[in-house]
């Protein structure tokens, strides 16, 4: 009897302990990078010799970081918009219609999620080169904004498709019939009934798609043109020259941006429910 209670208590402690350890493991880098970004000295060493905001000031003054951030946000927003325009109808077709090659298309749309970024980047790079040759070099694709954007769209689509599909699975289709019965044609029904019903999936898909695009490094490395770098690339390039807390400050800015987006999404949908 006593032994039973003891074992249960031990079990509970073990569980709590493991959870705490995991949380610590996840949070540690975030905490330390945030701490580091406030260090006063240039060479990171412990203990810090004081705190300052100079690294935040320095990134605002760093033209490459600012333009990188700008490009990354522009890319992320445009890629997400296009990804939604393609991904939502694609998910609808996949869930509504039975057609030959449906399974193949389903897998194809999820592929960019599984292919390593380097492979994706190389493939797109080669494709762009080929395309330029095929068009007689008349259009500059390689290193163009269009080329970069099309790559990022590819990163966004699987997230949108996957999360919208998950939402559609839980969507009651008799609601659409009810709308038809009340006089709503297909488009009105989609706009007024279906879309609000799958909004959690759409919002979450957009959110994750944006984050995936915003943080993408490997694929972008192959696609950026001279003088135009995304934020992750700008960070990488900076790191090649020196290590100082301004990198930490940039990371904190990124974390805050993504965290804010997450919180905003969470107001629409409990993220833990759709992923």
């Amino acid at each position: 009897m006593m032994g039973g209670i003891d074992r249960r208590t031990i079990g509970r402690w073990a569980l709590t302990g493991t959870a705490a350890l995991t949380l610590f493991y996840i949070l540690m880098p975030l905490i330390s990078v945030t701490w580091l970004s406030f260090y006063a000295q240039e060479i990171p060493s412990f203990p810090p010799q004081g705190y300052s905001l100079r690294w935040y000031a320095s990134i605002v003054g760093n033209e490459r970081f600012v333009s990188g951030l700008l490009l990354s946000v522009q890319l992320g927003v445009s890629a997400t918009a296009i990804g939604l325009a393609v991904g939502v109808p694609a998910a609808l077709c996949l869930s509504r219609f039975r057609f030959p090659g449906r399974e193949a298309l389903n897998n194809l749309l999820l592929l960019p999620l599984m292919v390593p970024g380097v492979v994706l980047g190389t493939a797109l790079y080669v494709f762009h080169v080929e395309a330029e040759i095929a068009t007689g070099g008349e259009f500059q694709i390689l290193g163009s904004t269009v080329g970069l954007l099309s790559g990022h769209v590819l990163v966004v689509i699987p997230w949108v498709v996957r999360l919208v599909l998950a939402s559609l699975a839980g969507f009651d289709r008799t609601l659409e019939e009810a709308a038809h019965n009340l006089g709503a044609d297909r488009w009105t029904t989609f706009r007024r009934i279906t879309l609000p019903g799958i909004l959690p999936g759409v919002v979450a898909g957009a959110m994750f798609g944006f984050v995936a695009s915003f943080g993408n490094l490997e694929m972008s490395l192959f696609l950026v043109g001279p003088g135009r770098t995304t934020l992750p690339i700008a960070i990488l390039q900076y790191l090649e020259w020196k290590i100082d807390p301004s990198i930490a400050a940039v990371s904190v800015v990124q974390i805050v941006l993504i965290g804010a987006a997450m919180l905003m999404t969470d107001r629409f949908v409990k993220i833990s429910r759709v992923v």
């Binding site: 009651d172 008799t174 009810a178 709308a179 038809h180 006089g183 709503a184």
Partner: peptide, 20 residues
């Protein structure tokens, strides 16, 4: 005629009320 052009009022077994 498609359903939305007929003037019928249908009550569904599960009611199908729009939840939002």
């Amino acid at each position: 005629l498609p359903a939305w052009k007929r003037n019928t009022g249908l009550v569904f077994q599960n009611y199908a009320l729009f939840p939002h």
